[in-house]
């Protein structure tokens, strides 16, 4: 008969806490070197002395911040970015809502197919999808050719301006919004709607008074997500804006890579983070009001 020996001597081993620490060490190192330190360093960088040559001074001062916050260009950059991002968020919401509601009401294989169609763009590179928009919006693209075929002599320019950026980003952010809305639609019981309809409310009134309020948390989440992604997006504004649309994200890249004004790039990054913090707070507040 075989049996396990009870309580045989063991070499000294790590306790559970020791084992946990050992297992968490690698990720802690990556997190510290790749996240905590760079972020702290970024904050410090925004206070470094910037010299005209692009070199860094040795000392720390508030120059970058005072310049940035008094310069009309930077202020316009901030208000523009926030404004454009808000516009994109609203457009994304309007465009996504019908899809999400339709998805919520469809079932079976059809729903699976539609879900794949929603998620597929999420998994394709922003470069690919932006390229698609170039093909649609450029001077020789789908829209321009269609309008000319219809007899319009000079179709409006849809690219290398804000219009193109807004159209492209709206589409690119839609999957996020749809998924957020769907997650919030869980509370939308079809029986509630039926109840409202049987109580004599018109379909439009039912939507306005029952469906919309119930889906508000999903809209708030989607709104936060899209706003945050819009204000930090870079590839689409760069390619569809063609260097003629100035937003916070593109400016950060230009300052860092082209102008080599690292303190300013760092300060702008911090501003983006502040905007993030504010929108998170507003979201939390909105959620509390809805609840």
């Amino acid at each position: 008969m075989t049996s396990l020996t009870l309580c045989h001597a063991e070499p000294r081993r790590l306790g559970p806490l020791g084992t946990a620490s050992a297992l968490l060490l690698p990720i802690a190192v990556v997190n510290a070197i790749g996240f905590l330190w760079p972020v702290v360093n970024l904050l410090k960088m925004s206070f470094r002395e910037a010299q005209a040559s692009g070199a860094l001074g040795a000392g720390y001062n508030l120059d970058t911040w005072t310049n940035a916050l008094t310069d009309s260009f930077t202020l316009e950059l901030i208000t523009n970015s926030v404004g454009v991002s808000l516009l994109i968020t609203v457009l994304t919401l309007i465009a996504s809502y019908p899809i999400a509601l339709y998805l919520h009401r469809s079932t079976g294989t059809w729903r699976t197919v539609l879900m794949v169609l929603v998620v597929a763009p999420l998994l394709t590179s922003a470069v690919v999808r932006t390229y698609g928009w170039i093909a649609i919006l450029s001077d020789r693209g789908l829209v321009a050719n269609a309008l000319m075929a219809l007899g319009m002599a000079e179709p409006p320019r849809l690219m290398f301006n804000l219009t193109g950026v807004v159209i492209g980003l709206t589409e690119i952010l839609m999957p996020y919004m749809i998924l957020a809305l769907l997650s919030g639609f869980g509370r939308l019981d079809p029986r509630l709607e039926e109840a409202a309809l049987t109580l004599g409310a018109s379909p439009l009134k039912t939507f306005w008074r029952v469906v919309l309020p119930l889906t508000a948390p999903g809209m708030a989440l989607g709104g936060l997500l899209c706003f945050v992604l819009a204000i930090s997006s870079f590839v689409t504004p760069k390619l569809l804006g063609g260097g003629r649309v100035f937003l916070l994200a593109t400016e950060i890249y230009d300052q860092a890579i082209v102008t080599l004004n690292w303190p300013l790039a760092a300060a702008l990054s911090m501003i983006v983070l502040v905007v993030f913090g504010i929108s998170l707070t507003l979201y939390a507040r909105a959620l509390r009001r809805i609840a």
Partner: peptide
């Protein structure tokens, strides 16, 4: 937390170090 950071900010932060 790194997922919450916009990639543009994270990219810059990494570039600097």
């Amino acid at each position: 937390a790194p997922l919450l950071l916009p990639t543009i900010v994270l990219g810059l932060a990494l570039l600097l170090v």
